[in-house]
């Protein structure tokens, strides 16, 4: 009699993910609505639970990232990327950037990723689009990336970031996003919309069957 651990874990996922969102420190229902209207939320005193959630998110991100690195099957890579993207979205929720979190979900996980999977499905002839990498190459890339990671981590940990942890944290209020996009960021906003138009025409042209 073997315990089907994997099955149990899979069954637990919905509940576990639900728990993350449930326990997110943004208690919009509890906070004063007038405050959240102005997009002001007091800094979340997360404590242990926030730490646990952070480590869970980070674990999912890093585990699925590692899986992407080591996977030889391109479809699986795309599915692992879904794990990364979803966990990054949860991390945005932890960082009180709700709007970015949902945009990550709707645009990245719901749009870009599907596009990538679609591309994979259309371009791989055999059902298992596997590809081999030479072991020497893998090791070389690993060493390079490890050195790179070491340097970056040293820099990132030791740099003196302008930190103000006690300050009032501004949440992502829709009003702020709206005024931001129509005032300070008007030009990039317009530029990127024209860019999207041009890219749409380019992509449609490139993908069109003659």
């Amino acid at each position: 009699m073997t315990l089907r651990l994997k099955k149990i874990l899979l069954l637990m996922t919905p509940l576990a993910i639900a728990m993350f969102i449930a326990a997110a420190p943004v208690h919009a229902a509890d906070t004063d609505l007038s405050l959240s209207d102005q997009g002001i939320q007091t800094s979340a005193d997360g404590g242990l639970l926030e730490a646990l959630m952070f480590y869970a998110c980070a674990g999912v991100i890093l585990a699925s990232g590692l899986a992407i690195c080591l996977s030889k099957n391109i479809v699986r890579m795309a599915v692992y990327l879904f794990g990364t993207l979803a966990a990054v979205a949860l991390m945005y929720f932890l960082l009180l950037a709700n709007f970015i979190g949902v945009i990550q979900l709707i645009v990245y996980a719901g749009g870009t990723l599907i596009l990538l999977i679609f591309g994979v499905m259309l371009t791989s002839k055999s059902p298992w689009a596997k590809f081999e990498v030479k072991r020497s190459e893998l090791i070389a890339a690993g060493v390079v990336c490890a050195l790179f990671a070491g340097m970056l981590l040293f820099v990132v940990v030791n740099a003196e970031w302008p930190l103000e942890t006690d300050a009032v944290v501004v949440g992502s209020s829709m009003t702020q996003f709206g005024t931001g996009l129509l005032t300070n960021y008007l030009v990039p906003f317009e530029a990127i919309s024209v860019l999207l138009l041009v890219v749409m025409i380019g992509a449609a042209y490139m993908a069109r069957q003659e």
């Binding site: 596009l115 890219v199 449609a204 490139m206 993908a207």
Partner: peptide, 14 residues
């Protein structure tokens, strides 16, 4: 995020 989406769209077409 928007740039990434635009880039992915064109890249998949290419």
């Amino acid at each position: 995020i928007v740039l990434a989406a635009a880039e992915a769209a064109l890249a998949v077409a290419i």
